[in-house]
Write a protein that binds this DNA or RNA. Structure first.
Lengths: 225, 225
DNA sequence: CGCTGTTTCAAACTGCTGTTTGACATCGAG
DNA sequence: CTCGATGTCAAACAGCAGTTTGAAACAGCG
């Protein structure tokens, strides 16, 4: 009960703005419960992240979508999945909220979040991007293209209040959700096709210019250890 | 002296995390100075934003770049300008920092920031995008394309800590700055060219489908008043 | 029942924040 | 010089945060 209350409060308010008092009140527990069961506020936060690890994985994406599925289809599925998670119309994706907040105001738990949630996802998406772009792009180019995709999605999360002020009709809603997914997918696919054809025209006869270790856009493990 | 100290502290820490004590200490003033000269912390914050209004405008972009300059050149100039402002290697763009933070955790000053800084910029960039895309796109499509550009740029701001953990080499530095500008510009131009040619192929003979009021991507003034 | 270890709870504690207060300093005009 | 307005300053205040404490309640078990 405490964990679930903490999850929603952390998701709504972020780590710093979330108060132990509100968590305990929502859980019907005493103020001292957090410090008794978990060491302190940070301990509770880490447990929340650990608890979210399992249900944050999406089988639709990472399991049933292997390389036999056409890469553009995988891209669209990813955009739809992440976009829904990021917008969080429903509260069923608290980890998406927490991850978004961690990016903006990182806590000590960021390293764990990156290793457990973000890096596998980035590597998976990087594989999709590699399939679309082909072998003639360096790992840095691949990484930049990957981040161009993620950036388009996260923008609506990080800049939601601004978009609402700028023009509320532009902010994605349940009704316009699929339109936005289509736009981001089409925009990206058009960009990738253009980049690839341009690259092919530049060096039409040279073979793959990068070795096998460069096929992955990001480091496969953290550099910090 | 108080204003400049407040500007840098607000830019570094954000409104909530910034403390009056640090501002006064950095300015060599007393704690009570803020409440005496400005009403309270929020009053000081608003004055900081007002003071930044003038030097935040960039003549290179908004003045010397009229419609006689080719739209792709204007786009690249915008990307370079905003990207530098957002990364803030040097501290010369505190307003960029403050604006980025306002987007993520908005304060009561957000409305002013949007009207004074963001809306004119969004309309200007929307004009560039319209010139590239042509008339066959609705205002909503134009707005989404515009936000795909801004999203790619702001991503490096909002997700800096994550990128550094994921792979430090991917994070833009002074050395790789121009490479990133080139990527975002090329990615966007390729996407826009693809979208436009696809649209032209869809309806090659129909004329402009939208009236003149639809040429602007966002509302020209706030809906809230 | 009686004991022991565990969990709960109200209250107090510590430390940080923005803000206020009242005494003191400064200084220009009459 | 005198006076009053303006600014400065150290200190205290009030509020809220996370944390600790010590007593009370509880559960399991001989």
């Amino acid at each position: 009960m405490l964990l679930s209350a903490a999850t929603s409060v952390f998701a709504e308010r972020g780590f710093r703005e979330a108060t132990i008092r509100e968590i305990c009140q929502r859980a019907g527990a005493n103020i001292a419960a957090v410090n008794y069961h978990f060491r302190d506020k940070e301990g509770l936060y880490e447990e929340v992240i650990k608890a979210c690890r399992d249900d944050a994985r999406n089988p639709e994406i990472h399991l049933s979508m292997d390389s036999s599925t056409p890469a553009p289809v995988r891209l669209e599925a990813y955009v739809r999945w992440m976009f829904r998670r990021v917008l969080a119309f429903d509260v069923e994706f608290p980890m998406g909220q927490i991850m978004s907040r961690e990016m903006v105001e990182p806590t000590q738990a960021l390293e764990r979040v990156v290793e457990v949630h973000i890096r596998p996802e980035a590597l998976w998406l990087g594989g999709v991007m590699r399939d679309i772009l082909g072998p003639r792009f360096s790992r840095e180019e691949l990484a930049r293209a990957t981040m161009s995709v993620v950036g388009q999605i996260l923008f609506y999360k990080h800049c939601g209040p601004v978009i609402r002020l700028l023009d509320p009709k532009v902010m994605p809603s349940r009704d316009t959700f699929e339109v936005h997914v289509r736009h981001i997918t089409d925009f990206t696919l058009a960009a990738l096709a253009g980049l690839r054809s341009h690259r092919d025209a530049e060096s039409p006869l040279t073979s793959v210019a990068f070795d096998a270790t460069d096929t992955v856009p990001f480091a496969v493990a953290s550099h910090t250890r």
